[in-house]
Design a protein around this nucleic acid. Structure first.
Lengths: 218, 218
DNA sequence: ATATGTAATTTGATTAATCAAATATTCTGT
DNA sequence: ACAGAATATTTGATTAATCAAATTACATAT
């Protein structure tokens, strides 16, 4: 059985691997994203390699094996389902769920996880709009970006609104953010929780982060 | 911060302490209920004593301090709220929740716990009928009769099951002896070690003395 | 009161995860 | 091409939790 530390390393390496061009993650990144000193990362990664979860090339970097990727996707599924659960069922704020999920993802059994999945209606994305891998480890990659994670200054159009509440739909209507509308994201100000949008007719609009997450674009 | 091992020791010592007459738990019991060899229990208890969670008298036994009891009740609250949550919200079978809760009780934050408590409507007892300590650490401690010492032919209902082992809970489930069920005790046959129960639907059931002692009624 | 058995403690090792600091390797700029 | 900087690895210690096996203390029965 993988310890919770192992699970953390594998998940984090997966996340870094997605970002990296060549699919190999240098040790510095591993150490950094896990919050440990470089020496610790080296030691740990060598032991992950012994358990066939990663391929490790000294002084180059690390890359998940088949088995490692499977475990990573499993952890990602856990993490994201738990995040959604914390928001949907327990009413936590989306800003406070990450650390919670970080702990819970190691403690929850498959049995409980599948109950949560069912309770939430087999959701496809977590509260941040990140895709939730399926039980068999499939991560839909034709995933839509939203206003909070899409590229800046690129021509986009609104594809989907993921909040059916009437207040929100009213706001969507009033602001002209209906599906099909073309726009670009001019800038994001995380501190102020604001996203500046630019429409083809020259108008601009500022929306908050929670709203931006519910607006998927492509 | 208490590690999850410390939390386990403290909770288990609390549980043993309730059973014991003089309030002191011998090392053998500690080792046994934690599933470790005696030497380990000794070492660990000494370290618990260093952190002022228990008073330890060598070759005699261990007893919780004020702080230890507080932690124990906190863990008991966690455990029992989680058990109820697993049954009520996630629809798990009440005979399979103990091990789940055993893991989750260490991972869940106070924040999440209070949300669960609210979601469940601040319940007083868990699915086994065990009382849930309040947030401030109060445990309602009315003593209930069991099937072996209650009055005969009196209308009763099952209040609490004091054996958490899944075999026993399975038996309880199969025999329809869950908390809340109404019945009377028709007769006891000490020689045959048998208690005859009578249900409101006319059915009767015979259980042995050891089982009867684990079924509390009021 | 002595021997025997049971219970508890000590001692010495082990495993997983970590850090600090010394060392080695590779990259980069001139 | 070489010095210096940036990265990575090694080495030696540390902490928490555990076990096996040796030892000690206590209780009790003859």
């Amino acid at each position: 059985m993988a310890t919770s530390t192992v699970e953390d390393y594998i998940k984090q390496i997966y996340l870094e691997q997605i970002e990296s061009a060549d699919g190999s993650v240098p040790m510095g990144r591993v150490a950094n994203s896990l919050g440990v000193v470089p020496g610790t990362a080296t030691t740990m990664v060598k032991s992950l390699a012994d358990s066939e979860l990663v391929d490790y090339e000294p002084r180059v970097g690390v890359r998940l094996t088949e088995a490692g990727e499977e475990l990573a996707l499993q952890m990602l599924r856990r993490h994201r389902l738990i995040e959604l659960f914390l928001v949907e069922t327990l009413g936590l704020d989306w800003s406070e769920i990450h650390e919670e999920a970080e702990k819970l993802e190691h403690a929850i059994s498959d049995r409980v996880l599948e109950q949560i999945d069912a309770l939430l209606g087999h959701p496809k994305v977590d509260p941040h709009g990140d895709p939730i891998p399926t039980e068999s480890g499939n991560l839909s990659n034709e995933l839509l970006k939203n206003l909070c994670n899409c590229d800046l200054n690129q021509p986009l159009h609104i594809a989907r609104i993921t909040d059916q509440s009437s207040v929100f739909l009213q706001f969507i209507n009033n602001s002209g953010l209906m599906p099909g509308v073309k726009l670009t994201v001019q800038e994001r100000e995380p501190a102020a929780d604001a996203i500046t949008l630019h429409f083809s007719d020259g108008k601009t609009l500022i929306v908050g982060t929670p709203a931006g997450e519910k607006i998927l674009v492509e």
